[in-house]
Design a protein around this nucleic acid. Structure first.
Length: 867
RNA sequence: GCCCACCUGGCGGAAUUGGUAGACGCGCUGGGUUUAGGUUCCAGUGGCUCAGGUCGUGGGGGUUCAAGUCCCCCGGUGGGCACCA
């Protein structure tokens, strides 16, 4: 092989990337009313280095965008940066760099890496959430929520690090309740925090899930679980005083088991319930206070572990069961959560496992009021019967089934004024306050006389001050910037103070996909005409780790903005592809628990720790620095080029499954591209010129040689299969394998084919290859004299006449088992097929002259003879 | 505990939706070319096998002329939610 004919991706890729940029090939077309397609990857946090998970994500989206373009869509394929967040602030604390500078440097480095992948991204629409031309509109949208009554402040329990004197996010508190930074035991503190009222949209967010037919079932299920709607009943238990006199006040409990109300033996409040202090009788005050103190010092983990003992104390007060009129004691207990339902539950030990454990511990009565259907009234068996059944000892409701009783009791409660049907959600309002510097400032001002005053829209953005001092301690640096904090109230002009909390970064990422439709707008976050034209996103691609939060928040934003008249659709993402993670080969010493770098493993087929000579565990796991199993995308591109990396990633596994990175398979993929290189080289040496094809027109079928017919069949089979793989349910792995099959067929038949047929095959192969290996496809296209860029070519359409065969192999089955094949005319009818099958050698041998009792004929496929 | 997904050769994975299981690739085996090696080309590659068959898609049962695919039971792996009343 001569030097000139070797495939050298490093000589090709950067050249084409430059050429495409110069030609503006990836620019989003003017939207002149043609069919649009919006292909979107979840935007990255600019950590500074690209990892394989990113590569997989963006390559998948790029193939989708490129093939949509070739099919004649006007494609929007943008990229941006989710650029606020803790790592920048930590870099500032640890290394004294300015978070904004650190972030911008990372973005520059990562943008370069992305460009080396040959992604057809419209960089003119790039956005960065930490730049004020973006976060200005995040603030503007916050004010929309505020105006709509969907943003509010209230006291909330937060994690407080007493050493660093700062609030921590839940993720920054480890399993033992210690701060990730200081190691101090985290305290619970009550602080006034900003919330978005996502619960107001809980119903819609749940009810619209079935509309998302283009989403993976499991993501919809996860969201449904997260929202956690449960229908039940609120029941009012009236407070009575020591003399049994009604006080006129009542405790409301939420239950999904109204049918068990006759079995209530006590009522429990959460220790944090606001009424606890007031209702506690003097004789119980000490015990109650001690218990509340104990609970407040428990970590979330201890508190919510399922096997933790259920503990509590009676507070001395009594309540009346509205169904029976009986008096039962009021308790507080650690197993009742203040945040869910009404913060109060009725205790029915016979029919709830937790209540049962609690009752046993404190010797409270157990009253059975449900028996299994079909059983007689039976002796109490111990434990809690939590299934549905038939009511007993329940007065007028005796004999009803649980389901009927829930309805009847709820109806009675409503009629008689002691309860009501109620839908309850697990979903809580979204706490967006962060006591952090590197985030989008919440645009409000606190004024002593006017209260919370929104920053007027024309004064946005509230700029995040730069060059602040980081100590890593105390509240956010913002709170210490007196010249920033102190402002005049926009309302009354009196001295006032800025809000110093910033927003959760999920706020920034909840609307970025809208901004791409109109990224340079200086008077609005986006023009409605633009957003309505491009959205909803046709295909969203990203990791499963965002299945709940980001996707739920984005859906919430979309619905709110729709209700504000800012856009005209209900759901932001029509189709969602959750790509699997990229795993690296991992070596671990099972005894020491240490991970070993692959380079330190001497023999991968019998991997032993080089030092201890112990056998290592070998498995695939998500790439991570600490496990020494990562593969750097840059090194792969250096060695094999972006096209090989792209092809390998697409071929190795279906997109939604985990991908096991395997160097041998990367090699294999590189070999495939080299084979193509030689194929095209040979064609160029034959002087095949693609432009000749169109002029000559298709060769009539009857003029084709058998080899040419084979070749054309392979070409059009590939068109049909790959087109299929790229529409709807994306199957890039089989699409790549179809490319391999086509190239195999071309290797076999191309030489014997006329220039017209050979050119058709070459042009088709290159066009089909273009979305997957864009550089190489373009290089080949130019080498063979194709006009313009291959990426402006139309996607080929399969010619059905090329798929026609004269004869087909007919499968002969005897009683469902394959016994042979028979070459038969492709257009033979059922009767002919039956006749041919019965006359076949196979039939003669297996039927031994007897006529079959039954014959099943599937034209084009098989004949099944049943003796 | 509740919910979801998945389980196919040595490995990653195919299988027009009930119709020839194992496409395509990796790996492996044998051979040719070149050679110092790699590259490259050809052939083979699920198990058993008396070479005709026979078994085979986590296990067991069922429906059907025909089951990886549909139904029932069981097991395993991964994931989500979880003291949510």
């Amino acid at each position: 092989m001569t030097e000139a004919s070797r495939y050298r991706p490093e000589l090709i890729e950067s050249r084409w990337q430059q050429a495409w940029a110069d030609q503006g090939l990836d620019r989003t077309p003017e939207n002149d009313g043609g069919k649009t397609f919006y292909a979107l990857s979840m935007f990255p946090y600019p950590s500074g280095n690209l990892h394989m998970g990113h590569v997989r994500n963006y390559v998948i989206t790029d193939v989708i965008a490129r093939s949509a373009r070739m099919r004649g869509h006007r494609v929007l394929h943008p990229m941006g940066w989710d650029a606020f967040g803790l790592p920048a602030e930590n870099a500032a604390i640890e290394r004294g760099v300015e978070p904004g500078d650190w972030t911008d440097r990372n973005i520059a480095a990562m943008r370069l890496q992305l460009q080396q992948l040959g992604l057809s991204i419209d960089w003119d629409r790039e956005l960065t959430t930490c730049h004020s031309d973006y976060y200005r509109w995040t603030q503007w949208l916050f004010l929309q929520f505020l105006e709509a009554g969907l943003a509010y402040r209230r006291e909330a329990t937060v994690n407080w690090d007493p050493v660093d004197q700062t609030v921590l996010a839940n993720e920054q508190v480890d399993g033992e309740g210690r701060s990730w930074r200081s190691g101090a035991l985290v305290e619970k503190r009550q602080l006034r925090q900003w919330f978005l009222k996502i619960t107001a949209y809980a119903d819609q967010l749940l009810d619209d899930l079935p509309k998302l037919a283009g989403w993976p079932e499991r993501v919809r299920t996860m969201q449904a679980n997260w929202i956690g709607r449960s229908s039940g009943t609120e029941l009012d238990f009236e407070l009575v005083d020591g003399q049994g006199q009604a006080s006129g006040e009542s405790i409301t409990v939420f239950t999904t088991r109204a049918d068990t109300v006759f079995g209530v033996s006590y009522v429990v409040l959460a220790p944090e319930h606001p009424l606890v202090k007031r209702l506690t009788t003097p004789d119980q005050a000490t015990a109650v206070e001690a218990f509340c103190d104990l609970v407040s010092r428990q970590s979330e983990q201890e508190r919510t572990a399922e096997d933790s003992p259920k503990r509590g104390v009676p507070i001395g007060a009594m309540v009346r069961n509205p169904a029976t009129g009986a008096l039962v004691p009021l308790w507080i207990a650690d197993y009742v959560l203040a945040e869910y339902g009404t913060g109060a539950v009725m205790g029915v030990p016979a029919h709830d496992q937790r209540d049962f454990l609690f009752a046993r511990r404190y010797e409270l009565p157990v009253r059975q009021v449900i028996i299994p259907e079909g059983s007689d009234e039976h002796a109490y068996a111990g434990g809690a019967w939590t299934e549905a059944g038939i009511l007993i000892h329940s007065g007028r409701f005796n004999g009803l089934s649980s389901a009927a009783a829930k309805k009847a009791i709820t109806a009675a409660a409503e009629a008689e004024g002691w309860g009501r049907g109620k839908v309850q959600y697990r979903l809580r309002d979204w706490l967006i306050s962060r006591q952090r510097y590197w985030g989008c400032p919440i645009p409000v001002i606190h004024c002593e006389s006017c209260g919370v005053v929104p920053v007027p829209a024309e004064q946005l953005p509230v700029e995040l001050p730069r060059q602040v001092a980081f100590s890593g301690k105390g509240a956010s640096p913002l709170a210490q910037l007196e010249e920033w904090v102190n402002v005049a109230c926009p309302c009354c002009g009196q001295p006032a103070r800025r809000e110093t909390d910033t927003m959760d970064t999920f706020m920034c990422s909840s609307w970025y996909y809208l901004r791409y439709s109109d990224p340079h707008n200086r008077s609005l976050p986006f023009e409605r005409s633009q957003v309505d034209r491009w959205l909803p996103v046709d295909q969203y691609v990203g990791g499963i780790e965002h299945a709940i939060l980001h996707l739920l928040y984005s859906r919430f934003f979309t619905k709110v903005l729709r209700d504000r008249g800012l856009l005209g659709f209900d759901e932001p993402f029509s189709r969602l592809l959750t790509q699997g993670m990229v795993q690296g080969i991992t070596y671990k010493n099972p005894h020491s628990g240490k991970y070993i770098a692959p380079g330190d493993v001497t023999d991968a087929t019998d991997p032993r720790d080089p030092k201890t000579a112990e056998v290592l565990e070998v498995f695939y796991e998500k790439m991570s620095k600490s496990k020494y199993n990562g593969v750097d995308p840059a090194s792969v591109i250096d060695r094999y080029g972006a096209d090989t990396a792209r092809m390998f990633i697409l071929f190795k596994a279906p997109p939604e499954k985990d991908l096991e990175w395997d160097d041998a398979d990367v090699e294999g993929q590189f070999r495939f591209l080299q084979r193509l290189w030689r194929l095209v080289e040979a064609a160029a040496n034959r002087d095949l010129r693609l432009e000749a094809t169109a002029a000559a027109g298709p060769t009539p079928f009857s003029d084709l040689s058998p080899a040419e017919r084979e070749l054309r069949r392979a070409v059009h089979t590939a068109i049909s299969a790959i087109s299929d793989d790229l529409s709807g349910d994306y199957q890039f792995n089989t699409a790549v394998s179809e490319l391999m099959k086509l190239s195999n067929a071309m290797g076999e038949h191309l030489e014997a084919a006329s220039p017209a047929v050979a050119n058709e095959a070459l042009a088709t192969l290159l066009t089909l290859l273009a979305p997957f290996a864009p550089h190489l496809a373009e290089e080949f296209w130019q080498k063979l004299g194709g006009s313009g860029s291959i990426h402006r070519q139309h996607w080929p359409v399969a010619d059905p006449t090329a798929l026609v065969r004269d004869t087909i192999p007919l499968v002969i089955q005897i009683k469902g088992k394959v016994r042979g094949n028979l070459e038969v005319p492709a257009d033979a009818d059922k009767a002919t097929l039956e006749k041919l099958a019965l006359e076949s050698e196979v039939a003669a041998r297996w039927l031994e002259g007897k006529a079959p009792s039954r014959v099943i004929v599937v034209p084009g496929k098989l004949v099944n003879l049943v003796p």
